[in-house]
């Protein structure tokens, strides 16, 4: 079986007898890329683990109705992004008075993360990324780390290529400024 072919995987998923097997292959194929995307949004491994599990549960529940209007990969990425952003939104709701912001919490997670292996300058970069507005942060991560094309990002984030380019440009300038400080 050409297990990397999404079309074949989807047709296997639609068959009751091969559904679990097909889904297992889909998870193995995409789990790492989706996990790292989510991890950069929520920072902590435990939170990323929760989000990625919820993502794949949603995928399981919705895959039968997926009509291939977009690529499977794009659809999965969109679900993972939405799950991660919803997770942060729930966090925000907990703090009505913004003495402690979600960004503060994420920065604390980053500093105390035992699964962060970067050096000092990488830590500084991550902190600079955390200081960006949410959308810019998302765009920066997808472009800089995932090296995703703007056209692909536009499909996932449901926005225009021009807006994404502008967001990325602003993000880079702000990060550069932050890196230049002390």
């Amino acid at each position: 079986m050409a297990k990397n072919n999404d079309k074949e995987l989807l047709s296997l998923f639609r068959d009751e007898n091969t559904r679990h097997h097909a889904f297992n292959i889909i998870i193995r194929k995409y789990q790492e890329r989706l996990y790292w995307h989510v991890r950069r949004i929520v920072i902590s491994h435990d939170d990323a683990d929760d989000v990625i599990q919820n993502t794949f549960i949603r995928v399981w529940n919705g895959l039968e109705k997926f009509h291939e209007a977009s690529k499977l990969y794009t659809w999965l990425y969109r679900i993972a992004t939405n799950e991660a952003l919803s997770f942060l939104k729930q966090y925000r709701k907990k703090f009505i008075i913004p003495i402690v912001t979600v960004e503060n919490i994420l920065e604390n997670s980053l500093e105390s993360d035992s699964f962060f292996n970067g050096d000092e300058i990488q830590m500084k970069l991550q902190k600079a990324i955390l200081s960006l507005p949410e959308k810019q942060r998302l765009v920066f991560n997808m472009k800089y780390f995932d090296e995703m094309k703007y056209e692909e990002m536009a499909k996932i984030l449901n926005t225009s290529v021009g807006a994404l380019k502008a967001s990325y440009h602003h993000a880079v300038k702000k990060i550069e400024k932050k890196l230049g400080k002390g």
Binding site: I27, E32, F115, N117, Y144, F145, E176
Partner: peptide
Amino acid sequence: ISPRLTKIKRGNPYSVPENYFEELPGRIQ
């Protein structure tokens, strides 16, 4: 526009617990 940024190694600074990706599909199922 980002001379400082281009000097930074573009690697993934995060890691996961051992066997995490081997076990994840089973936990999701």
